[in-house]
Structures are given as C-alpha cells and as structure tokens.
Design a protein around this nucleic acid. Sequence first.
DNA 1: CCCCTTTCGTGAAACCTTTCAGTGGGTTGG
DNA 2: CCAACCCACTGAAAGGTTTCACGAAAGGGG
Lengths: 342, 342
Amino acid sequence: MVDVAAHAGVSLGTVSNVLNRPDRVAPATRARVLKAIEELGFVRNEAARQLRAGRSRTIGLVVLDVGNPFFTDIAAGVEQAAEDAGLSVVLCNSNQDRARELRHLSSFQEQRVFGVLITPVGPASRRIQRLREGGTSVVLVDRASGRHHCSVSVDDQVGGAVAIEHLLALGHRRIAFVGGPTSLRQVSERLDGARAALEDAGGGARLTVLETAAMTVACGREAGAQLARTAARTRSTAVFCANDLLALGVLQEMTRKELRVPQDMAIVGYDDIDFAAAAAVPLTSVRQPRAQLGRSAAELLIDEVRNPNSHDHRQLVFEPELVMRESTGRPDRESRPSATAQ
Amino acid sequence: MVDVAAHAGVSLGTVSNVLNRPDRVAPATRARVLKAIEELGFVRNEAARQLRAGRSRTIGLVVLDVGNPFFTDIAAGVEQAAEDAGLSVVLCNSNQDRARELRHLSSFQEQRVFGVLITPVGPASRRIQRLREGGTSVVLVDRASGRHHCSVSVDDQVGGAVAIEHLLALGHRRIAFVGGPTSLRQVSERLDGARAALEDAGGGARLTVLETAAMTVACGREAGAQLARTAARTRSTAVFCANDLLALGVLQEMTRKELRVPQDMAIVGYDDIDFAAAAAVPLTSVRQPRAQLGRSAAELLIDEVRNPNSHDHRQLVFEPELVMRESTGRPDRESRPSATAQ
DNA sequence: CCCCTTTCGTGAAACCTTTCAGTGGGTTGG
DNA sequence: CCAACCCACTGAAAGGTTTCACGAAAGGGG
C-alpha cells in the first residue's frame, strides 16, 4: 500500500479510503489510486486486515460428513446467507470424530473466526462452552440447544410420525422400521415419532424394529434380505427407513428377490437425497428443509455477532415434509393379506 | 502474549519461543509460561502469525463440484497430505462457474494462501497465470499442464480403452457409448480411448454414441430408454457410460423395461463411486486413484513451495483401473444374437 | 582465577492494514 | 472581511506475532 500511495502521489490513508470508503475520496484521486493499484498489481493482505479488525470475515462450519448430501445442502444454505452478508465460509469435516472436531474448533479460535456453526459429534461439549466464553458465537445445527444459545434443528419425531401416518393412511398394518444404531439421536427420535403415530392411530397396527449397525446402503440390503425371508403371510407390507441410503438398500434387495415395490412392500425413506428421486422406483421420503436450515443458522449467527445487544437467542425447529413418490403408491390389495392381521 | 509474559515473569520473546521452539527454553521457564497460558486462556492469533510469516498455512483447493464423490475423495487425499505437513485445507466449490472460480482465486490471493490446487473450469486461465506471477504456487488437478507447472491427472483415454477392451474380451460386438456433453474434456477423451481400443481390436465391432446433455442419473435413464427402444436384433449388447451416474440411470431403466443386466445389456461405468458397488446390480466401473491424486497434488505443491530451488515441475499421469463386478458378468450367449453383426 | 563457550533470555523491529484526530485549503454566511 | 464550516487528504498509532542481534549468567578448560 505504501508503494501504491507513492505511485499515486497520495498518502497511505487515502489508499485505504479508496479501498474501503471510495465515496470519501475525490473521483480524480480515486482514479489515480486505482490506476496505481492496477499497475502495481497490488493485492490486499487479508491477514493484516483481519489483525486490525480483530476478527475474521469467515464463518467456520463443522459437519459430521461432507460426503452426505444432507450436509452439503446445509452448507450451500450457509454459504448463501454468508455471501449476502459479505462473509465467507470454511467447511470442515469432523467425520463423527471427536478429536477432529476439537482440532477444527481450536483452529477456528486461533483464526478468530466470525462465528461457528456446528453439528457436534456428541452433545454440545465443554469445548464449545469454552469457545463461547472466549467470545466466539456458536450456533448449533441439527441439534436443539438450551435457552441460552441459538440453534436450528428439524423435528425428527414429527418426521417419524408423518411417515407412519402416510403408511397407515394407505392401509398398511404391518410396518417395519429399519435404522440404527439407536444410539443416534436422529434414529431414536424418528422411531419415537413413528411409535407415537402408531399409538395415536389406535392399536390396530404392528411395528417391527430392525436395528442396523449403520445408515448405509449395505446395511439396508441386509435388512431387506431379512424382511424378504419372512413368509409373505406375516411379512410387513411396508418399511420406514431412518434414511434414504437404507431405503435404497432395501429397495435393491426387494428387486433382487423379485418382490414388487410398492405392491409387495412399500418403502419410505428419510432425507430425500437426490438419489431418492432417481432410484429404480422413485422413493417416498421425508424431506428436511436443508438449505433453509443452513441459511437460518447463518442468519442467527450473523445477528448474534453484529447486534450483540438487541440479539436474543432462538431455538428454531423446522418441520419436515413428506414427499410422496412411487415407492408407496397405493398398495395392491390383492397381493397383500387384508388389513386384519394382529 | 504480553499478558502471558507478564504473568509468567518473562519477556515476550520467551513466550514466542515456548510456542515455537520449546527446546530453546529451560524446562522450568517453559512450565511457568505454559501455566500462565493455561490460566489466562491465551489463544494464539493466527492472523498475526500469518501477517508476520507473510504466507498462511492453508492450502486453497477449488473443485468443480463438492457434491461429487470424485472430488470429495480427492479432497480427502489432499487433507491427509496437508495434515502430514502441518497445513490445513480450505475446500471451495466453483460449481463449474467461471465467476465463482475467479472469486475464490482472488480470495486465496488476498489470504496469501500457502498454495493453490485447482481443477479449473476451462483450460488453465489467465487468472491462474496472474496468480503464479504473484508468487502463489498452483498445481492443476485432474488436468494435464505444460512443462512449466505441476499437475496431476488420470489418463482418460486409457480409461476408455480398458472399458472397451473388457467388453470386447467378453465377446460384445455392438457397444454403445453414453456420455456428454462431448465438450467436456473427460467425455471426449474417454470416447477417444474407446474408439482407439475398438480400432486396435480390428474392425469387427460397432460403437454407437449417445450424447447426453449432462452426466446425471436422469440423463442416463433417457439414454437407457433410447437403448431399450431399439429392436433386440440390432440393439447394442453392452454400454459404456462416461460416469457412474449415467450408468446407474441406464441400469434403472433396464430394470424397468425388464431387460436383464448383464445378460441382455452389460454396463460399464466410470469413477467407481460408492453407489456403483451398492447398485441393484453391482456396477463394473473404471476407478480413478482419487485419494492418490489429491495426495500427490498436495505433495507436489508443498515441495514447490518449500524447496523452490531444488523443485522441478512434474506432470503426473495416473492410470485408471477396471473394477469388474456383476454388471458385465459373462454375457448370456442365448439371449444375444451371435457376434456377427456389422 | 581468567577467558571462552554455551545456554537462556531480552527487547525492538518488522509484517500490512485500518482508523481517527488533525491539517490546510476553499466556501458560505453574517 | 472574518468566523465558521466543510471537504479531501494526511500521518501516526495500534493490532499480535516472529525473528534476530545482543546481553547476562553459568559452565568448562587451561
């Protein structure tokens, strides 16, 4: 900048003004400075700006799995809101690993990030508490938080409930739940919601729970195989999977075993990933407002940082939405023992 | 740091030494300083370090699509190499958009990143040239470069060739190529490789090209529908898709039209994404050494930056590898008109 | 006991920007 | 014609770290 100033015949402060408040500089001078910048190929040093500002213009975002479209869509929402506010985003992957999560948080703190958005591996940790005490704002994503912080999440119980209600409305009375491990909050809450919906409907239906080791296509196939092994008379006529990967696995196994979807087995997934609509039989799925989730989280964070006085913490809970496709088309009455069993 | 120094009763320089060259400080003093750091909750300011160092410890990585596992796997390789070298990575998405790419590059330059790894949207642009002139090292990923820079890529012609050779070896003589737009370098080179392999094998086989508008599952289904419409007598007996998404689309359409894979139609994909192995019929696919690609790119970059004198530019080209699965199991001779057609 | 090394520490400069009080013209109003 | 004011610009301080030339003390050898 000194060089630019000399080249343009102005002082350092004027160059800075051209860069940051161009309206305070006379047009002629401004043009001269811009020309000097161009000629010298000057590029602002972000580190110095940041040092001076005391805080960076970057939002730190930590997700559980960058390979999962759920999180990349959230990230897209965050980026959009950040861009609107003149901020950038750095996306980090904890890979469900506590140690990696901690490393990322430490790095964020050293970078004096604008703020942190995180889907924590476990319940909000002490490290996050420390981060807040250090003056960094944190918003929890896909996790509800206490009254004293901001968070955005989707109501997984409602999600489980709408899936089951849909299946019940279609006349299914023997339903399987595929998902696991149940130690995952998402899984257990979706299951809770499913059970609650069943109860609300009166006792006429049965829910069989197949716990899987993980939420992958392979585990879905295993669960599908297990379903297919059951004699048709007692077999569930519909399955609700805790995510779409499981549902795809179940679907593939049904195809292999020559069971028709939805006539012999209706399938509902969860997340509505792109592959769900593109599957051999397009999947009915429970969609979460992913981009919206990310956008809202970023907006809460920005408000918290920019308006520390007027800001009050909010816990946003979004409702998921059922997307109906062919995998639950009205089940074929003939091929299904009538709805009396059990 | 001033506070820490005061608290520990030492000078500023000593605190810095404790942080950066702990061996140069007497153990007792070191312990005192560490205690002070702990008590005061001191956290290094990365911006200041960076300002002082003149360069950040972050590698900038720009990919075409973060949603594509090909790139996330590359990113994982980069991260691994970076971590080993004490660097971090910021992953940016150009979304195949030139303007976004430029924004990311400008931001990298302002941040004085350690170096840049990029899969450019078009051919290496003037902007990248400018970046290099500005002293930032750049390594091209999944693109070959000229002699004067480093790059890592995978030989797409070889990839196309091995796919076709495999199909020819299985006895197929009417083969379709699905992919597009052909303006994509990857597509055209894979097609070139396929044609070359066909020629090498002598003229006994035919290649039908179906150009798609994009590389998506939906486009694959369209192409699959088109294939299925052809009368069985003249229909191709095998299809080579320019990526796995297309292959999955074709596979799904085959299932819908009740054509058997591989008996009625063998399918080879490209990229070997996770979904390829998990498909209803596991896909034969051409695998690229993705993590390796990322790791090598990062290593070249690090060498270029750390050893500017001894470094010489290298253009690494990796060979893809055919992963055989059920979608090309030996074709059923009965259901296939014998291998005489044109 | 003195000189020479080595070991520990010190303190100030440098990195680059932003900000803000201040300067020196020119203009306006009385 | 002077005071008040505005505008465009200036110059220096501040922000937190690393580095490096130096000093002081301690240890070793003759």
